[in-house]
Design a protein around this nucleic acid. Sequence first.
RNA 1: GGAAGAAUGGCAGAGCGGUUUAAUGCGGCGGUCUUGAAAACCGUUGACUGUAACAGGUCCGGGGGUUCGAAUCCCUCUUCUUCCGCCA
Length: 422
Amino acid sequence: MLQLDVLRANPQDVKKRLTKKNFKQINLVDTIIELDDKRKASKTELEALLAERNKLSKEIGILMKNKDPKAEDVKKRVAEIKDEIDFKEAAVNQFEAELNESLVQLPNLPADIVPEGRTAEDNVVVYQVEKLPAAHQGDLPHWDLAKKYNIIDFELGVKLSGAGFPVYIGKGAVLQRALISFFLSEAAKSGYQEMMLPHMVSEESAYATGQLPDKEGQMYHVTADNLYLIPTAEVPLTNLYRDVILEESDFPIKLTGYTPCFRREAGSYGKDVRGLNRLHQFDKVEIVQLQHPDKSYATLDDMCKHVEGLLKELKLPYRILRLCGGDMSFTSALTYDFEVYSVAQGRWLEVSSVSNFESFQSNRLKLRYRTEDNKKILAHTLNGSALALPRILAGILELNQTEEGIKIPAVLQKYTGFDIIS
RNA sequence: GGAAGAAUGGCAGAGCGGUUUAAUGCGGCGGUCUUGAAAACCGUUGACUGUAACAGGUCCGGGGGUUCGAAUCCCUCUUCUUCCGCCA
């Protein structure tokens, strides 16, 4: 959620930047400022009435103690004020509700270096591996490899749950476990503290990181207990610091966690959902940092370097995109996507997305730090996948297929205990 | 799931209808003393809102109610503790 101060300080600039993000209801900015004006005015009036009531009530207390009959007169006066108070209070509540409802609809403002553009076509490639892997005769896409070596069974998943819930078998399952261990170990090496987290969160948590109300339909909702299955570890990880006031010396806070992720993916069909490309349940190791506003962009670069390091270790051909305004998420100020190239599918697969949210999340989280002169300032939050497993697995299977079988990348072998799937 | 009790400022802990603008202790910060430190003593120390700055307002787990007035009484929800039941 954007800070009201920012809107008020420079509404024209805010509108310009919202436009870059392809946000249509620009006049919402003016509506919000008007609502805030109204809210402030009514609140000042309400508070004057409350002050008057408090004063008179105190007088009544003294009069009653002295058994003074004038107490009854004062009581009558307060009763009159009370009606006004109820009326004003309703008005203030109304304005506050409307203001909040509008404010929540505004997406985060894009950073200056975010490219103009509306779709994925407009994203800027900031790095691409020099040589794409050569195509070989008879290369199979991962869903065929999965079947050939009996390491993933999509039909069994359908039997248990439906499409998008694959069952990993034998070496396939071990490879998943190895990837999780590898990613967590690497994150630990980079100084991230590992957390094991709940896979369901409350409405409050989902709201604080911005999944609600924006992405209501994307999450599985356990209605009996009003809990949401997490779409990413970002939600519990970042909510750990909801309503927290940090000291400046606490920065940076670096957290990591492995969780399964659950996404309804309503409306996604076609070739994009083939095999491991898009699932309802998948595994991911997430990294999160909480940082001082002055350092968050340097931190974003650090996090990108970490992700890049993983892809290099796994020897996967990758590229890095700076997302354009129209393709960025609602909550992000700057996002880099990492994609792995699959020859067998002839396409790039998104395996990580690293973002700086600036104070957009911390505003709702009420995550702040205390400055030397005791001011409380919103911290910046960042997160990234490091990494999401299914497409990494797809990449490994497709890129390392040989006539003998699928070669396991060297860095993973100490976690798998085998070097080939045959 | 059943029964009972509890929830107060960073922590501990009073207050149970009207100078509470929440006592007191610990911790934190500043000072005196000291070569320095400790001890002792003195002072200071919550959050939100609001103002140019004051003032003012709100907050005693959340929400609602009673009252002229609620931390204090009532209802409700949540969480915790203890006991019982069930159970990885």
